[in-house]
């Protein structure tokens, strides 16, 4: 109990950081993943090839490596820090932004594959009807195919988001002050491994269980009846 009173404020701060990491990465991954999915189903050979190569490379790289590459590769080797170096909080901000970048790039590949699976469930007649009315490929995708594809894969997208929330713990390897980094610190200070572990596990469940429930609800509510 004294752990909670002693570290209560820090817990809130750390989990807020976790939520920020997950939320920003989720939005970016959704956008990028959708663009990648559109490229993978497009009639243009070059777009398909680029998107397929990207997905296969990034999806099959361990997340820790992607995060480390963003930190060491981009920031330390290439000097891409995504912040104004004169800012007093430049180091913290840089780690945070690079982590968001890494999670977005990584999670986008899973979003892409989920959305593409959704596109494949839409009967070909839907896009044929769109084409026969004079809609172009992009218009057909935007107005007809993608809206239905998303509704078909809301469940899987929820799983991807849950995985992303838990994956944000990897950001501790580049020093982002989110929940997992605090957990390490508390364990070192208190040696109460099991209690601390349970507290943080519970903290993550407070984020992931409602996420799962919300996506199940949306998935039923938005299902396209045919």
């Amino acid at each position: 109990m004294e752990i909670l009173t002693e570290y209560g404020d820090q817990l809130v701060t750390a989990f807020t950081r976790t939520i920020q990491l997950a939320a920003l990465s989720a939005v970016a991954a959704l956008v990028l993943g959708t663009v990648l999915a559109a490229m993978r189903v497009s009639p243009v050979w070059a777009l398909r090839t680029v998107a397929t190569a990207y997905v296969n490379i990034v999806r099959n790289t361990p997340l820790t490596l992607v995060v480390l590459f963003a930190s060491f590769g981009l920031a330390q080797q290439l000097g891409i820090t995504l912040v104004d170096p004169k800012s007093p909080t430049s180091i913290t901000d840089s780690s945070f932004r690079l982590a968001v970048l890494a999670f977005s790039l990584y999670t986008a590949t899973f979003v892409c594959e989920a959305v593409r699976a959704g596109v494949n469930t839409i009967p070909v007649g839907q896009s044929e009807a769109a084409r026969s009315l004079g809609l172009g490929f992009t218009q057909g995708l935007r107005y007809i195919v993608l809206p239905q594809a998303f509704r078909a894969v809301i469940g899987p997208l929820g799983s991807i988001l849950i995985a992303l929330i838990k994956n944000t713990t990897v950001a501790s390897v580049i020093g982002v002050a989110e929940a997992a980094l605090l957990m390490k610190e508390v364990i070192e200070n208190t040696s109460a491994l099991i209690v601390v572990g349970l507290i943080f596990a519970l903290g993550f469940m407070c984020l992931t269980l409602p996420t799962g429930a919300a996506f199940s609800y949306l998935s039923k509510k938005l299902a396209v009846r045919t």
Binding site: Q126, E128, A129, R131, S132, L133, G134, I144, Q148, T226
Partner: peptide
């Protein structure tokens, strides 16, 4: 091609109304 198709109406066996 899209302009050309806009001038050609098509009705399918399976209706293909936009389900959403």
């Amino acid at each position: 091609l899209t302009r050309y198709r806009a001038d050609v109406g098509m009705v399918f066996q399976s209706f293909n109304l936009f389900a959403h």
